[in-house]
Write a protein that binds this DNA or RNA. Sequence first.
DNA 1: CCAAAAGTGTTTATACTACACCCATGA
DNA 2: TCATGGGTGTAGTATAAACACTTTTGG
Lengths: 234, 234
Amino acid sequence: MTQYKGQHHILVAIDCIIFGFDGKDINLLLIKRAFEPEKNKWSLMGGFLQPNETLDEAANRVLKQLTGLEGVYMEQLQVFSEIGRDPMERTVSVAYFALIDLHQYEKQISEEYHAEWFLLSKKPRLIFDHDDMVRLAQKQLRYKAALHPILFQLLPEKFTIPQLQNLYECVYDTLFDNRNFTRKVMSTGLIVKLNGKDKSGSRKGAYYYRLDKRTYKVKEDAFLNFVPKADKFI
Amino acid sequence: MTQYKGQHHILVAIDCIIFGFDGKDINLLLIKRAFEPEKNKWSLMGGFLQPNETLDEAANRVLKQLTGLEGVYMEQLQVFSEIGRDPMERTVSVAYFALIDLHQYEKQISEEYHAEWFLLSKKPRLIFDHDDMVRLAQKQLRYKAALHPILFQLLPEKFTIPQLQNLYECVYDTLFDNRNFTRKVMSTGLIVKLNGKDKSGSRKGAYYYRLDKRTYKVKEDAFLNFVPKADKFI
DNA sequence: CCAAAAGTGTTTATACTACACCCATGA
DNA sequence: TCATGGGTGTAGTATAAACACTTTTGG
């Protein structure tokens, strides 16, 4: 077989918006770009699509390079294709966003990229259109998390309800009633109480829970409602 | 400025899943592919991304070529990037889905593409991964329409409530209670009663309504609930 | 006057919201 | 013993669901 004649071939990149939760705040993993243009500026972790991989594979490859993690929650966000978005040459970039428990993050792996976690509220200005990508990812995170239980992906295996509520409060930048929140979460059957307690947050200690993976698979796509008046925040 | 060295440049295509509503059923606009490979097979309307346009612009260009319509509802769906998806050469394709009132469709424009409307339930097998694209678009249509009033895009300016309900019933392949449906739609303030009646569907006739564009702009992103137990259908 | 679709209200059940006190513990 | 965060219940309100009859009119 021959090729399509006279068509313009261009670079296809992927960029990953990597969100992490440190127990207190939402963070964003950024690198110092290693090559021109915009060398040494803060940037999302990215790369070019290779001939032998799909976009999902490319995104997972990039994520693994930076964090050492595999099997992470990740979804395609949107393609960015403004003509001058990369001043070097025409490049379209497929943005992915990923959610990880940042305590699983392996620092040594990322050091070769000069990676750093930034509070989402204090991130530096990024290169190209990466600020737009982050903004859109944040919006999508709020949208999706209002309907589906994806935020569990940001927590460790064992977590407490106050931690979970705090996470939701971070994402929506508001406070929820803890009685209503607990009741809603419990009513989904998504979490299972464990024996131990986490004593780091208080004298009394808060019970650990874990995800019920069976229920999670069933309810991943169901419409939930942990977030009162969710559409006000989106 | 020079270019990125040693990177693989590839073709970027766009493909449009165009949904229309004829008052009775959801339809899909397809063309007979005009060139090899898979010449004369049924296909989505598509094209290659040109150097001087963004993806959104490319999608709108393609849609206009085929239907003559501009300013149509359209959203980026997903990029398809399986390695062998186009046997001719590596191509990633950005799928868009569009919603149009098919009575506005200009037949003569499309004749040069041998375009035809197909009942969604009776569409032929399509080339490449276009069947996957249609399946995903259908899923996204159900998802989005369960939350946001996008289905109005499929109706003419003047429409009746029975028409609207019938449209929802088509999309979700189920029946709704007409009293509850009417009440919900009316309570949103999205539609305005007109004087005339549509007598084509019954002796008694059904009042025409139109969208209140001001309210529509405000509520486009709000979570609505025309669809009872929506998550059962997604 | 009859067939066929349009239009309209009420009751019940469920889900959501608001709200405040006691508990357990380590220092 | 006290300061701190964790855990729990109830009553009121709003929203959604289930349900059936009357209206209109062309033939």
